[in-house]
Nucleic acid binder design. Structure first.
Lengths: 333, 333
DNA sequence: TTGAAAGCGCTAACAT
DNA sequence: ATGTTAGCGCTTTCAA
């Protein structure tokens, strides 16, 4: 069987306590002794048992990432970032798909707690105050991603959604759109709400504005597709659509194709997120790009700092978004 | 602090062994006693500590999924499937991006072993025999996904790649293509190789066939893009392209658009995988669809069965693929 | 600087 | 059917 700390202790003729000290790089060990112990560890091919370490120390070098659905390309980039940061800091990440269901989240949090997980990156918008309190009590660190409530007592990372929405609309206006509609995400989703608000702020004073220019699209391709059909029936003269996310913008494109509309001549389209899908549509999609990888990266880094006790106050970080102009709003040539 | 097994034992006036028995549903417990224990557990809000269980039993109810890159939509569907199955069987999944690097895989496997992980779904094609042996020795179950070597002593799940390739070519021939090229994936990748072989089997006897109709595309969008440019320079009369995966097929489409080719009139395109991207391109992509979710599902189920000791011989499972005809090969109307 | 020893919370012989 | 007890492999006071 694999060597244990005791074997190492015996071979190097010190106590297990000392071996433990060199494992954990506690500085009070005599260099000579340390050398001996290290040699013994090599000889025995000793590797510390992380489960035992976890039980004794209540730290497992494991974090969890809870998100609605990994199949959404936005989230798979987030996962990649979180995993990269975790990996390079010696952490391992457990993935949890919540489907946006509180019940699923609940049961995940429960088992994560039982597993002595060190922290959670929460990228779903159904987090409840009770959960936060409970996690705090269990000494599980928490960082929330892409969430907009003014929640105290935990760090939040998100992009500038409202500002991004304004940028989108202002771009559409610049290129000459005379009547701009918005397809918005799920009500109850703060991110969707903020983007909608940004849109409204930009357009409410125009004479052409009407609340019926707002259509729900559920943040899905199909939602965007249906919304577009509905919208153009009511407002055949719309010449610009700002979709609350890229997935819906793809749906918009599909619907417009089917209706024989020319993009951007008849109608210009702008999405939000900056997922790579926007580069494979025809025409390519103009979008407000979030720094997706950086969002995940920052979340993971802050979480790990918290776990490691490097003081990090609870803060709200809002990352900048950028307008990426593509053929769905202006012909390059 | 949270209640321990000892607290429960005390409150219900039994030994910890008995409490352990009811936790683990060992049948030899008197119903009366059981009731008492359960009541005590509720009263104390007792929850078994999974880390302690893990240390004592060497089972952690955790599996790992090693894949090249979660950002690839094929893999995010796989992840979703594996996670679903794991979740509903009380397992938790650790995600590992290997980027196809043996070194990364190596270091992952090492920490997974130290964490007493129960099993691994391996969806990367760099697995080495030594690793398999080592894992077996550590009593870590293994299931390999989408891998084609005739590796003994572990279960393999994959789709019928060669057959799928033949279906693709045969479809292109049926619709009247007179000269069909193939863009293939990374050499060294067995999956890519099998698809290439399927193509060759179908075309080698045609008079128009030439090995220069084979172009590498690295399984990436950009690779497919570049390959197409190169291909059409050499063979301007190609009228059908079978891309080894959908990502490359997307690249093909982009290149053809840029060159002003009409699809499918001038050139028909067929991909492989059946990821949802194929539905958002213009035109939508004909593809050989793998049952992606089922692949992941099956892998996870088999792995968990192995872990739970339900005998499951090491087998190779080849799932069927299906041709999905779309506008990139035939106009619907 | 090092060691002894008491846990961490659970499982699993073995005994009764 | 239930209890006793020795671990699982490590961390961490406390003492020396």
């Amino acid at each position: 069987m694999a060597a244990t700390i005791r074997d190492v202790a015996k071979l190097s003729d010190v106590s297990v306590a000392t071996v433990s000290r060199v494992i954990n790089q506690i500085s009070t060990v005599n260099p000579e002794t340390q050398k001996r112990v290290k040699k013994a560890m090599e000889q025995l091919k000793y590797e510390p048992n992380l489960v035992a370490q976890g039980l004794a120390s209540k730290k497992t070098q494991t974090i969890a990432l809870i998100l609605p659905n990994i199949s959404n390309p936005f989230f798979s980039d987030i996962v990649r970032a979180v995993e990269d940061v975790a990996q390079s800091n010696g952490f391992t990440v457990i993935l949890c798909n919540s489907d946006g269901l509180v019940s699923k989240e609940q049961s995940y949090i429960e088992v994560l707690r039982k597993k002595y997980i060190d922290g959670i990156v929460f990228a779903s918008n159904t987090l409840r105050i009770e959960d936060i309190e409970q996690l705090k009590k269990d000494n599980i660190s928490l960082v929330v991603l892409d969430y907009s409530s003014t929640m105290e007592s935990c760090s939040i990372i998100r992009a500038k959604n409202r500002e991004g929405a304004r940028m989108a609309v202002s771009h559409l206006l610049e290129i000459g759109c005379k009547k701009i509609a918005h397809i918005y995400g799920p009500i109850g989703d703060q991110t969707a709400k903020n983007r909608l608000e940004g849109y409204e702020e930009m357009v409410h004073s125009f004479s052409w504005y009407s609340p019926t220019l707002l259509v729900p699209g559920h943040f899905t391709i199909n939602g965007g597709f249906e919304a577009t059909k509905m919208l153009l029936e009511k407002h055949p003269d719309v010449d610009g659509i700002f979709a609350g996310n890229d997935l819906m913008a793809v749906g918009v494109l599909k619907a417009l194709h089917q209706m024989g509309k020319k993009i951007p001549e008849d109608l210009a389209v702008c999405g939000f997120d900056g997922i790579y899908l926007t580069e494979i549509t025809q025409p390519e999609l103009t979008t407000i790009a979030q720094p997706i990888y950086e969002l995940g990266e920052k979340a993971a880094k802050i979480l790990i700092n918290k776990i490691n006790g490097l003081l990090e106050e609870d803060n709200v970080y809002e990352l900048d978004v950028t307008l990426i102009k593509r053929d769905s709003t202006i012909k390059a040539h």
